[in-house]
Measured scan of single mutants.
Amino acid sequence: MTFKLIINGKTLKGETTTEAVDAATAEKVFKQYFNDNGIDGEWTYDDATKTFTITE
């Protein structure tokens, strides 16, 4: 399955996707992406659209 990440950061904005077997696996991938890029904020997940959103 394809999961999308929408980034609404102070310095970084955009979208990316990842292929994962489930939302929990995608969450781990995206959290690592947050850490690697110094993004910290509030994030949500919409199961209907398989979209994670992080807002700094």
Rank of each mutant, 00 (worst) to 15 (best):
residue 27 E to L: 15
residue 10 K to T: 11
residue 2 T to I: 14
residue 20 A to P: 01
residue 43 W to L: 14
residue 45 Y to T: 00
residue 31 K to F: 06
residue 45 Y to E: 00
residue 25 T to Q: 12
residue 7 I to C: 13
residue 40 D to W: 14
residue 52 F to P: 00
residue 12 L to T: 10
residue 41 G to H: 09
residue 46 D to V: 03
residue 28 K to R: 12
residue 43 W to M: 13
residue 44 T to M: 08
residue 54 I to L: 12
residue 9 G to T: 15
residue 54 I to W: 15
residue 15 E to K: 07
residue 53 T to W: 05
residue 28 K to H: 07
residue 6 I to T: 03
residue 40 D to C: 13
residue 48 A to R: 09
residue 38 G to E: 13
residue 22 D to I: 01
residue 18 T to M: 12
residue 43 W to H: 01
residue 47 D to A: 12
residue 20 A to Y: 02
residue 35 N to S: 13
residue 7 I to R: 01
residue 8 N to C: 14
residue 47 D to K: 05
residue 30 F to N: 01
residue 7 I to L: 06
residue 9 G to K: 09
residue 19 E to I: 14
residue 1 M to S: 10
residue 37 N to M: 15
residue 36 D to G: 10
residue 6 I to V: 11
residue 44 T to Q: 08
residue 14 G to M: 15
residue 5 L to N: 01
residue 55 T to D: 05
residue 42 E to D: 11
residue 13 K to H: 08
residue 48 A to D: 12
residue 28 K to T: 08
residue 53 T to Y: 09
residue 1 M to P: 13
residue 5 L to M: 05
residue 49 T to L: 06
residue 8 N to D: 09
residue 54 I to F: 15
residue 30 F to M: 04
residue 42 E to L: 13
residue 53 T to P: 00
residue 6 I to P: 00
residue 16 T to L: 15
residue 56 E to W: 13
residue 1 M to F: 14
residue 46 D to W: 02
residue 42 E to T: 12
residue 55 T to H: 07
residue 54 I to H: 05
residue 20 A to Q: 08
residue 29 V to R: 09
residue 53 T to C: 06
residue 20 A to W: 02
residue 21 V to I: 12
residue 8 N to Q: 09
residue 6 I to A: 03
residue 44 T to V: 09
residue 35 N to M: 14
residue 39 I to V: 08
residue 12 L to N: 08
residue 46 D to T: 03
residue 7 I to T: 03
residue 3 F to E: 02
residue 27 E to V: 04
residue 53 T to I: 07
residue 9 G to W: 13
residue 45 Y to R: 00
residue 56 E to P: 12
residue 9 G to F: 15
residue 13 K to W: 12
residue 55 T to P: 01
residue 11 T to F: 14
residue 10 K to M: 11
residue 53 T to M: 11
residue 4 K to D: 03
residue 12 L to H: 13
residue 11 T to N: 11
residue 2 T to D: 06
residue 26 A to F: 02
residue 26 A to G: 01
residue 8 N to W: 12
residue 10 K to D: 07
residue 26 A to Q: 00
residue 50 K to S: 04
residue 12 L to I: 12
residue 33 Y to T: 04
residue 56 E to M: 12
residue 3 F to A: 03
residue 17 T to Y: 14
residue 36 D to L: 12
residue 32 Q to G: 07
residue 27 E to M: 12
residue 41 G to N: 06
residue 42 E to K: 08
residue 7 I to M: 07
residue 37 N to H: 14
residue 39 I to H: 05
residue 1 M to N: 10
residue 52 F to N: 00
residue 51 T to A: 03
residue 27 E to H: 07
residue 41 G to E: 03
residue 4 K to R: 13
residue 44 T to L: 07
residue 11 T to P: 04
residue 39 I to Q: 04
residue 3 F to Q: 02
residue 51 T to F: 01
residue 16 T to D: 04
residue 33 Y to C: 12
residue 5 L to V: 10
residue 14 G to I: 15
residue 26 A to M: 02
residue 14 G to N: 07
residue 12 L to K: 10
residue 56 E to D: 07
residue 30 F to V: 03
residue 34 F to K: 10
residue 42 E to F: 11
residue 11 T to Y: 13
residue 34 F to G: 14
residue 43 W to Q: 01
residue 4 K to C: 09
residue 3 F to K: 02
residue 19 E to D: 09
residue 7 I to V: 09
residue 19 E to W: 15
residue 52 F to K: 00
residue 13 K to D: 04
residue 24 A to W: 06
residue 9 G to A: 09
residue 51 T to G: 00
residue 20 A to E: 03
residue 43 W to P: 02
residue 45 Y to G: 00
residue 47 D to P: 14
residue 29 V to W: 14
residue 3 F to V: 04
residue 46 D to E: 06
residue 56 E to N: 05
residue 18 T to F: 14
residue 50 K to P: 00
residue 46 D to H: 05
residue 24 A to F: 07
residue 43 W to I: 08
residue 1 M to D: 10
residue 53 T to E: 04
residue 31 K to P: 00
residue 48 A to F: 09
residue 52 F to D: 00
residue 4 K to F: 13
residue 12 L to Y: 13
residue 46 D to F: 02
residue 42 E to I: 14
residue 7 I to P: 00
residue 20 A to R: 01
residue 34 F to H: 04
residue 55 T to Y: 09
residue 56 E to S: 07
residue 26 A to W: 03
residue 20 A to K: 02
residue 6 I to Q: 03
residue 34 F to C: 15
residue 46 D to N: 08
residue 51 T to M: 02
residue 31 K to H: 06
residue 27 E to Y: 15
residue 25 T to D: 07
residue 37 N to R: 14
residue 42 E to W: 10
residue 8 N to K: 10
residue 3 F to N: 02
residue 28 K to F: 08
residue 28 K to Q: 11
residue 14 G to P: 04
residue 1 M to Q: 09
residue 32 Q to H: 06
residue 17 T to P: 01
residue 36 D to V: 10
residue 24 A to G: 06
residue 40 D to V: 14
residue 43 W to D: 00
residue 55 T to R: 04
residue 15 E to T: 11
residue 50 K to Q: 09
residue 39 I to S: 05
residue 39 I to Y: 08
residue 1 M to W: 12
residue 44 T to Y: 09
residue 55 T to M: 06
residue 13 K to A: 09
residue 17 T to G: 03
residue 41 G to W: 15
residue 15 E to P: 06
residue 14 G to S: 14
residue 27 E to T: 03
residue 9 G to P: 02
residue 26 A to Y: 01
residue 6 I to C: 06
residue 14 G to W: 15
residue 54 I to S: 02
residue 30 F to G: 00
residue 23 A to M: 09
residue 13 K to M: 10
residue 2 T to C: 13
residue 19 E to C: 13
residue 23 A to T: 04
residue 49 T to K: 05
residue 48 A to M: 09
residue 4 K to A: 03
residue 14 G to D: 08
residue 16 T to Y: 15
residue 16 T to K: 13
residue 50 K to E: 01
residue 48 A to K: 08
residue 35 N to W: 12
residue 53 T to A: 04
residue 38 G to L: 12
residue 6 I to H: 05
residue 54 I to P: 01
residue 45 Y to C: 00
residue 21 V to E: 07
residue 42 E to R: 07
residue 22 D to K: 01
residue 52 F to T: 00
residue 21 V to W: 11
residue 5 L to F: 08
residue 48 A to V: 11
residue 25 T to E: 13
residue 24 A to M: 09
residue 29 V to M: 10
residue 7 I to N: 01
residue 40 D to I: 14
residue 35 N to A: 14
residue 26 A to C: 02
residue 18 T to C: 15
residue 41 G to D: 03
residue 32 Q to E: 10
residue 18 T to G: 03
residue 3 F to Y: 12
residue 54 I to G: 02
residue 8 N to M: 13
residue 1 M to I: 14
residue 17 T to L: 06
residue 40 D to K: 13
residue 16 T to H: 14
residue 26 A to P: 00
residue 10 K to P: 10
residue 49 T to D: 04
residue 41 G to C: 09
residue 11 T to Q: 09
residue 50 K to D: 01
residue 30 F to A: 03
residue 7 I to E: 01
residue 1 M to T: 12
residue 9 G to H: 08
residue 20 A to S: 05
residue 49 T to R: 05
residue 16 T to N: 05
residue 34 F to Y: 14
residue 38 G to M: 11
residue 31 K to D: 01
residue 56 E to Y: 12
residue 11 T to E: 09
residue 50 K to G: 04
residue 33 Y to F: 13
residue 56 E to I: 15
residue 41 G to L: 08
residue 54 I to A: 04
residue 37 N to L: 15
residue 2 T to S: 08
residue 21 V to N: 08
residue 49 T to S: 08
residue 55 T to E: 06
residue 41 G to M: 11
residue 8 N to R: 12
residue 16 T to G: 08
residue 11 T to H: 13
residue 32 Q to F: 06
residue 22 D to Y: 02
residue 13 K to Q: 09
residue 44 T to G: 05
residue 8 N to H: 08
residue 37 N to F: 15
residue 11 T to L: 13
residue 4 K to Q: 05
residue 30 F to I: 05
residue 37 N to E: 09
residue 44 T to K: 08
residue 31 K to W: 06
residue 25 T to H: 14
residue 51 T to C: 03
residue 20 A to T: 04
residue 24 A to L: 08
residue 55 T to F: 06
residue 12 L to W: 14
residue 53 T to R: 04
residue 13 K to Y: 11
residue 41 G to I: 11
residue 23 A to Y: 11
residue 25 T to C: 06
residue 33 Y to P: 03
residue 44 T to E: 08
residue 30 F to Q: 00
residue 29 V to Q: 11
residue 19 E to G: 04
residue 16 T to E: 06
residue 33 Y to H: 06
residue 28 K to L: 11
residue 27 E to D: 03
residue 15 E to M: 13
residue 24 A to Q: 10
residue 48 A to E: 11
residue 5 L to R: 00
residue 11 T to S: 09
residue 40 D to S: 13
residue 20 A to C: 07
residue 33 Y to G: 03
residue 16 T to M: 15
residue 21 V to Q: 10
residue 55 T to Q: 06
residue 20 A to I: 03
residue 31 K to N: 03
residue 51 T to Q: 02
residue 26 A to D: 00
residue 9 G to Q: 06
residue 50 K to N: 06
residue 2 T to V: 13
residue 41 G to K: 04
residue 52 F to S: 00
residue 50 K to C: 04
residue 6 I to G: 00
residue 33 Y to Q: 07
residue 14 G to R: 11
